[in-house]
Structure formats: structure tokens, C-alpha cells
């Protein structure tokens, strides 16, 4: 009997050695462990043995069963790995071939700039508001201290629709509208991005349509120092922490004092380069303290309230930030231009 067991073991090893496919492994399982398999055959002989022998052989057969099972399982695992390896080998591809084109669409550079500025000002408690592009002369000029015949109207040659209606030349009318609409005459903190229009021929630096962001803050005790603080915040946020602001007096009919703001050059840090034309400073926006006539025209008492206003040109900011040389690029919408803006920004 023991001899037979050994024989079975030897045969099994031989059989297993020959198997190279998983499906054939099952045949072996049947051959040894099946109902008519060799182990079953041996088991059927047990009944003819003595009780002592029965016990001994029974345990031997049991061990044999376990061993056969283990051996087959081991072989099964081996074959499975082998077959998986074969499958993987057969499925190998050239990973250096090009990928399938999947992309997000791009946000227009002007929108990127406007979004960025909006986010900053919202964080400082400003409301984002809007006003009509087809505007009344009253709001675009008169309420802003620019009566008819004022020489400063010259610099904003306008597209008129009727004598009283025009395409707004600036987002400043939204200042007047916001103050007018505030019936309690309470403090105001708003920015207003939008399209504006001037009667200019289009060239590399002029566009008959462009965008502006107007800012207005009206409260008790708002001063030039506050304006400067807010503009510094703006410059640092947009162009990097090290930026500084420089104010130059200027003239806008709707502010007094009027101030042009320069930001220290983000490229050279103030040493002078081609971007800042060697001056170390870049002209970035116009601003000032809201003219008392404008406050009064909109129902605010200038003896109680003061305020500042500023106007940012997103085109200018974008041109500086992204190194764009021709303002018309924003409106031509060449896909190669737009596709440049398909990623996050780097360090400021």
C-alpha cells in the first residue's frame, strides 16, 4: 500500500511537470482526486484491511490527499502567473505614441485678469456691480463733473447714438449710478468691470472697444492714505509681494485730488528695463478722491462723506503680465493666442 502511495506521488510529480496550461491542470485533479481517481481507488481498498491497518493507511491516504491538493494548487498558482505574464506580454503597447487630445477650454486673458481682481476686491468687502453699456450722457459725463463743452471730453471721443445716449467711454458712470441708487446714502464699496468704447481707430495700442474696472469706496473719513493702501494691496496681489505704489498728481474731472498710480516694475524690480522703459515704474491706473461735485450730484454730502475711485485697464494689466504687444490680439481670438492661457499661473 505504501508503495502504491509512493507510486502515486511520483506519477503526480511527473504529470504536473508536463502540464503547461491551466485547463489541463483540471484533468490531473480528476485523475488523482476525482471519484474514479487513483486515490479513490486506493481508498476503496481500505475496507479489506484490519482495524489497525485501516487507521494507519487512512491517515496515510489523508496525508496523500492533502499533499496532492497542495501540489496541484502550487502548480495552479505558477501557471496562473505564467499565463498572466503571457497575457501582459501580448498586450504590450508603445507608451511613447501620442495621447488622445483631451483638454479644457481656455478662459480669455481679460476674463482671467478681471476674475483675479474681482476675487481680491470681494475679499476686501467690495461688491461687484454692473451698469449699462448704452449710457446716458448724464451719467457718463455730466454727473461726473464733465459738463457739455468741457475740454476733457476731447480725450474721450465718443460714439453717440442720440444727443443724450452714447456707448459709455468709461465705467465711471457706474459710480454715479451706484451712489444715486443708494437711497440711504450709506457707505459704498464697489467695483464694476465692463466693456467701454471710444471713437479711436484700432491699432497696436488703441482699440475702439476695451474693458475697464471701476472701483469706488465712499465712507466717512476715507483719505488718500486709504486709497494708497488699497492700491498697494492690488499691486501686490496682481504683480507680487515686493511691489510698491507711486502716486503722481494728475487731472480727471471726477476726482480731486486726481492721482496716477505707478507700480514698481515687476520684471526688473525697479532697476530699469525694457518693460518699464528704464524708469523702474509702470503706469498702471488712474485714481483719486471723488470730486465733491460728483458726490453732491449723487446726493452725498461732501462735508460728511469722502471717497476714492480708481479705474483699472485689464488690457494694460494683461499686456504687462503676459507680455502681449498688440491690444488687437484680445479681440482677434486667434486659437494659438487663446490656447496660451491653458494653464495656471506661475510664481508672481
Amino acid at each position: 500500500m505504501e508503495k502504491k502511495i509512493l507510486e502515486i506521488k511520483e506519477n503526480l510529480l511527473k504529470d504536473l511537470e508536463k502540464v503547461d496550461l491551466l485547463k489541463n491542470l483540471n484533468d490531473i485533479k480528476v485523475k488523482y482526486l476525482g471519484k474514479k481517481g487513483s486515490i479513490s481507488e486506493l481508498s476503496s481498498c481500505i475496507k479489506d484491511l484490519s482495524n489497525d491497518q485501516k487507521k494507519k493507511v487512512g491517515s496515510l491516504l489523508n496525508d496523500l490527499k492533502n499533499e496532492v491538493n497542495t501540489k496541484i494548487e502550487e502548480k495552479k498558482k505558477l501557471l496562473e502567473i505564467e499565463e498572466m505574464n503571457k497575457k501582459i506580454e501580448s498586450e504590450k503597447i508603445d507608451v511613447t505614441l501620442p495621447s488622445t487630445s483631451i483638454k479644457m477650454g481656455t478662459t480669455h486673458p481679460l476674463t482671467r485678469i478681471i476674475d483675479e481682481i474681482e476675487t481680491l476686491f470681494i475679499s476686501m468687502g467690495f461688491d461687484v456691480v454692473e451698469g449699462p453699456e448704452v449710457e446716458q450722457d448724464l451719467y457718463n459725463f455730466e454727473k461726473l463733473n464733465l459738463p457739455k463743452g468741457h475740454p476733457a471730453r476731447d480725450s474721450q471721443d465718443s460714439f453717440y447714438i442720440t444727443e443724450e445716449m452714447l456707448l459709455r467711454t468709461q465705467t465711471s458712470p457706474v459710480q454715479a449710478r451706484t451712489m444715486d441708487a443708494n437711497l440711504e446714502k450709506s457707505p459704498i464699496r464697489v467695483i464694476c468691470p465692463g466693456k467701454v468704447y471710444r471713437r479711436d481707430d484700432d491699432d497696436a495700442t488703441h482699440s475702439h472697444q476695451f474693458t475697464q474696472i471701476e472701483g469706488l469706496m465712499v465712507d466717512k473719513n476715507i483719505s488718500v492714505a486709504d486709497l494708497k493702501g488699497v492700491l498697494e494691496m492690488f499691486a501686490k496681489n496682481l504683480f507680487g509681494e515686493d511691489r510698491e505704489i507711486r502716486l503722481r498728481p494728475s487731472f480727471f474731472p471726477f476726482t480731486e485730488p486726481s492721482l496716477e498710480a505707478d507700480v514698481s516694475c515687476f520684471k526688473c524690480g525697479g532697476k530699469g528695463c525694457s518693460i518699464c522703459k528704464g524708469t523702474g515704474w509702470i503706469e498702471i491706473l488712474g485714481s483719486g478722491m471723488v470730486h465733491p461735485n460728483v458726490l453732491r450730484n449723487c446726493g452725498y454730502d461732501p462735508e460728511i462723506y469722502t471717497g476714492f475711485a480708481f479705474g483699472i485697464g485689464p488690457e494694460r494689466v494683461a499686456m504687462l503680465k503676459y507680455g502681449i504687444n498688440d491690444i488687437r490680439s484680445f479681440y482677434t481670438n486667434d486659437m494659438r493666442f487663446l490656447n496660451t492661457f491653458d494653464r495656471v499661473e506661475g510664481e508672481k
Binding site: 483631451i102 483638454k103 479644457m104 477650454g105 481656455t106 478662459t107 480669455h108 481679460l110 476674463t111 453699456e133 460714439f159 456707448l167 466693456k195 468704447y197 475702439h208 472697444q209 484680445f330 479681440y331 481670438n333 486659437m335 487663446l338 490656447n339
Partner: peptide, 13 residues
């Protein structure tokens, strides 16, 4: 944008 569309801005006139 998420569907792959590029935003454009064109003239109003």
C-alpha cells in the same frame, strides 16, 4: 471651459 470650449471676446459693433 470644462467641455473644451475656449472663451472669446469680440466687438459689440
Amino acid at each position: 471651459n470644462s467641455l473644451g470650449s475656449n472663451q472669446v471676446i469680440t466687438y459689440s459693433l
